[in-house]
């Protein structure tokens, strides 16, 4: 059943995401085209260049923000609005609905970020990027001689987990927010802000103590501190994912209030 729900969610979300990707791709290609032509310097070409770069930067931010907006709106439409009557009368468990929406969110976020990375590689000269990478490599491996294998593994895992934790935080806020009879959206926004503040506060306190503790334990060894920090970051992302999933599942599955 998860496959069916995911297919349905994916196809529905494509209606929002594909036009956005298309617009961004056109913008990206126009900018690339401008760089390739590289007209002679002058007031007009300078103005055009700054317009192109501003549009591209705006496009990058718009893509990142709209990805979240689309995922939030889709969840709201399917689960909290009138369409929730259809969603929650399908013979599908609440857990399956949530997992499907999480997977769907993760996939679309991945597509967005892949497209953004692709745009960087396409627009900026490869030799410039290569130079930046070589400098980074030199600093990390030659000057400080760090072994980044473990931190990189955990940071990658954190990134993947954040693809789930991010949307789930919104879903959990909406799942709790639907409990009230009036002003469900406002309540959900308030809950999200509250949840965000609590998590930020707890994690900053936690990390301050952790870094302090690890520095004392390791005697200021950057390698150990970095490893502990990356593991803790992953543990926090994982804990957030589990907590937000449970909240969403409990309030949609056990306390549903489509009034």
């Amino acid at each position: 059943m998860l496959g069916k729900v995911f297919q349905y969610d994916f196809r529905n979300c494509a209606r929002y995401f594909l036009p956005m990707y298309l617009i961004f791709a056109v913008l990206m290609l126009l900018t690339k085209l401008y760089f390739l032509i590289s007209p002679a310097e002058g007031p007009l070409s300078n103005a055009l260049l700054s317009l192109m770069i501003s549009s591209y930067v705006f496009g990058v931010f718009a893509m990142a923000i709209l990805t979240s907006v689309f995922l939030i709106y889709y969840f709201y439409r399917k689960c909290i609005s009138s369409e929730g009557y259809l969603t929650f009368t399908l013979p599908v468990s609440t857990g399956t609905h949530i997992v499907s929406k999480c997977l769907n969110g993760a996939v679309w976020q991945l597509f967005t970020y892949l497209l953004l990375i692709l745009s960087i590689f396409l627009l900026f000269p490869m030799d410039e990027l290569g130079r930046v990478l070589r400098i980074l490599q030199y600093i990390l491996f030659s000057r400080i001689s760090l072994d980044l294998t473990v931190p990189m593994i955990f940071l990658s895992l954190t990134l993947v987990t954040q693809f789930f934790a991010g949307p789930l935080m919104f879903y959990a806020s909406m799942a709790v927010g639907q409990m009230v009879t009036r002003h469900k959206v406002l309540t959900s926004i308030g809950l999200y802000i509250g949840l965000y503040m609590v998590i930020s506060l707890l994690s900053s306190f936690g990390f301050s103590f952790l870094i302090l503790g690890s520095e004392i334990l390791s005697g200021g060894d950057i390698q150990t501190t970095l490893t502990i920090y990356s593991i803790a970051t992953f543990a926090l992302a994982l804990a957030e994912t589990v907590l937000f999933y449970f909240l969403t599942w409990f309030f949609l599955g056990r306390k549903l209030n489509l009034s």
């Binding site: 929730g84 009557y85 929650f88 009368t89 056990r254 306390k255 549903l256 209030n257 489509l258 009034s259």
Partner: peptide, 9 residues
Amino acid sequence: IKLINGLLT
């Protein structure tokens, strides 16, 4: 009716 359909608890 909503209770019977699980739309309310």
